[in-house]
């Protein structure tokens, strides 16, 4: 009995099983959880983390790390608001936000891949630099959105489902495809598995890593725009600590920090588990302070599970 349980939990689909069990339990035990309204709210609450997790997955899969995502999200949000206020064109605001995100990501990538500076250190530095830019640009204050059309990004609905959730779903689809079915995705996993062997096998390791970080920047730009739209302003202090939630979600989703192992389905489940835990705690009126503890414990358990799973795989 316990052997069979072990096999299920430590197998390929272990995470999905745990997710389904958790979902069923929460649905049964927490009142008002399984309602249309709450489900949409839950999904909307994970949009930022979910979007950024798409590319963080690539980063981690290539044995890299990106701590600057929270700052880029805030900065991109500021840029989107300020640029569209200044030019009167929302499209221009959005494009400049994405361009700024891509630029920061590109710089991260070049420093890490070409100058061989540890990703943790590099992104720790850019995290602070970019946050500084966001604060300077706005003088530390929130910048309100002028055009009501900008709010509509977050408020509009398609088939009764808010646009940000659609964006999230589309990005999940795109990056799932990129990871599994493109040369870029396979090279990312190969680099994470063994960087030197990948290089000697003809993979352009530096270029791939720069692309990963640039994409990460682009995606942070998109997340920043949607966040700004939802909170109806550019906030220089938005998304503080986002990097940790995103990495937690990825790890929870079975992405190996040692590189070489990642699945989109795992990351989606990881994001949802984080969302469900938070949502359920809110519904149960658990004070925010305790929620930190619960989130930490969930993460620890996930990592322990991951450890067990790798040693189970190793033994096979």
């Amino acid at each position: 009995m316990t052997d069979q349980l072990k096999k299920i939990l430590l197998g390929e689909q272990g995470l999905v099983v745990i997710f389904l069990v958790a979902f069923a339990l929460v649905s049964a035990l927490v009142p008002n959880f399984l309602t249309d309204r709450n489900m949409l709210g839950l999904l909307q609450s994970v949009v930022t983390v979910g979007i950024v997790a798409c590319t963080m997955m690539f980063c981690l899969a290539a044995r890299d790390f990106d701590l600057s995502v929270g700052s880029i999200v805030a900065f991109a949000g500021m840029v989107a608001v300020m640029a569209s206020n200044a030019t009167g064109s929302i499209l221009l605001g959005l494009l400049s936000a994405i361009a700024c995100g891509a630029f920061v990501g590109f710089i991260n990538g070049v420093v890490i891949a070409k100058f061989r500076i540890n990703a943790l250190i590099t992104t720790l530095a850019t995290m602070q630099i970019v946050r500084g830019f966001a604060l300077i640009a706005s003088d530390g204050r929130a910048v309100g959105i002028n055009s009501p059309d900008f709010y509509q990004l977050a408020l509009s609905k398609l088939l009764g489902i808010p646009t940000p959730i659609w964006v999230l779903a589309v990005l999940f689809g795109i990056f799932g495809f990129v990871l599994n079915r493109t040369v870029f995705g396979k090279n990312t996993l190969a680099i994470g598995g063994n960087p030197e062997a990948s290089r000697l096998a003809g993979v352009n390791v530096d270029r791939t890593r720069i692309w990963i970080f640039t994409l990460q920047g682009v995606v942070c730009g998109i997340a920043g725009i949607l966040l700004a739209s939802r909170i109806t302003s550019g906030q220089p202090n938005a998304a503080v600590g986002l990097e940790l939630s995103v990495i937690s979600a990825c790890v929870l989703g079975g992405v190996s920090l040692a590189g070489g192992r990642a699945t989109m389905s795992g990351v989606i489940v990881g994001v949802l588990i984080m969302g469900i835990a938070e949502n359920a705690m809110n519904l149960l009126n658990i004070p925010a302070f305790y929620q930190y503890i619960v989130r930490g414990v969930i993460l620890l358990l996930a990592v322990l599970l991951d450890n067990l799973r790798s040693s189970a795989l190793g033994r096979r």
Binding site: V183, K186, N187, L189, A190, G192, G193, N194, E196, A197, S198, L200, A201, G202, V203, S256, G260, R261
Partner: peptide
């Protein structure tokens, strides 16, 4: 160190370059 890509399948190890 320089040859196999650990954690990936035989299929992926064969195709990494010629794909």
């Amino acid at each position: 160190h320089d040859g196999i890509i650990q954690g990936r399948s035989i299929e992926e190890n064969i195709n990494i370059s010629s794909r």
